[in-house]
């Protein structure tokens, strides 16, 4: 195709949008909402995956011992823990060491109230080889004499894993829905343009314009709508994430490690917007030309 023709066809695509500005605008807005929703879902899923990895990386269970147990007995318990096949690591944390850790976060005057008494329990930080055998291993740990209680991050890991699994279905459903809605919106918008240009189309057919010439402006229209929506949704998502981050950063410094929307997400938006544009445009014009749009004399 000649470049002059291509320029003409692209210009016509933009004319389609201008000619149906309010409808084009509302479909862009709906598409932005759809893509934004997808973005939110994808970002939540990414964050929860990151969180899971963080938790898994430090999949430590803390095994608390009776607070009045002598240190020699505690070390004996430590070797028993080490014997459990699923335990990979076991570090003793004495009463004093735990207290020292607290002293970094708890104001000093709180310690004054304790009057030299140390109420904390000595503990072991236990790492497991295989988190999925968590239940058995924790039962074995609880069975050891002198073990008071166990708390763990693994409980979190389990919850997160559950959440991730469930959410990945939700994510797929939402993405499929968004694609369908986008296709529907774009093809409907283009159908409206087509009806408003049905005279042009009939004239084009009568003077022997090729189907490519008839189609391309509508496909351009679809691509432009998809592209604008994708760019706006990317921007909106970025801004929303930054704002949210700024709001909760002070409350929980840990969130700053989370990655927000990525370039691959933005590229996916743009790809999806353009693809929906091409497909929406192609479907609706093909259907139109097969039916009433095929007439010349009418």
């Amino acid at each position: 195709m000649k470049t002059g023709s291509m320029r003409y066809l692209i210009k016509e695509g933009f004319n389609n949008i201008r000619g149906n500005f309010s409808i084009s605008l509302s479909s862009v807005v709906i598409l932005i909402c759809c893509l934004f929703l997808t973005g939110v879902v994808v970002v939540i899923s990414a964050i929860s995956n990151q969180a899971l990895r963080v938790v898994e990386a430090q999949n430590k269970i803390t095994v608390y011992l009776n607070s009045d147990i002598p240190e020699s007995d505690a070390l004996l318990i430590g070797s028993k823990i080490q014997e459990i096949s699923n335990v990979s690591e076991c570090n003793f944390c004495s009463k004093e060491k735990t207290m020292e850790k607290f002293s970094y976060v708890v104001p000093a005057d709180v310690f004054d109230l304790l009057e030299g008494h140390n109420p904390v329990e000595p503990s072991f930080g236990v790492s497991m080889k295989d988190l999925s055998k968590y239940d058995e291993t924790s039962n074995e740990l609880k069975g050891i004499e002198g073990v008071e209680s166990i708390t763990d991050c693994a409980e979190w890991a389990k919850k997160l894993t559950h959440f991730n699994n469930a959410f990945s279905y939700v994510k797929i459903c939402i993405i499929v829905m968004v694609i369908l809605v986008s296709l529907f919106i774009i093809s409907n918008t283009i159908r409206v343009t087509m009806y408003s240009r049905r005279r042009e189309i009939s004239i084009m057919k009568s003077v022997g314009a090729t189907n490519l010439f008839i189609r391309v402006p509508f496909i351009v229209e679809g691509i432009v709508i998809g592209l604008i929506a994708a760019i706006c949704a990317s921007g909106a998502l970025k801004i929303a994430f930054e704002l949210l981050l700024r709001m909760i950063k002070d409350l929980a410094p840990v969130v700053s490690i989370f990655e927000g929307p990525t370039w691959s997400l933005y590229s996916a938006f743009i790809g999806m917007g353009m693809l929906c544009g091409v497909l929406g445009g192609t479907f609706s014009i093909a259907r139109y030309l097969r039916t009433e749009g095929g007439e010349v004399f009418g």
Binding site: M1, Y8, F213
Partner: peptide, 11 residues
Amino acid sequence: AFAMRVTGVPE
């Protein structure tokens, strides 16, 4: 001109 443009005739 429309009839020419849509059949790819140069401007």
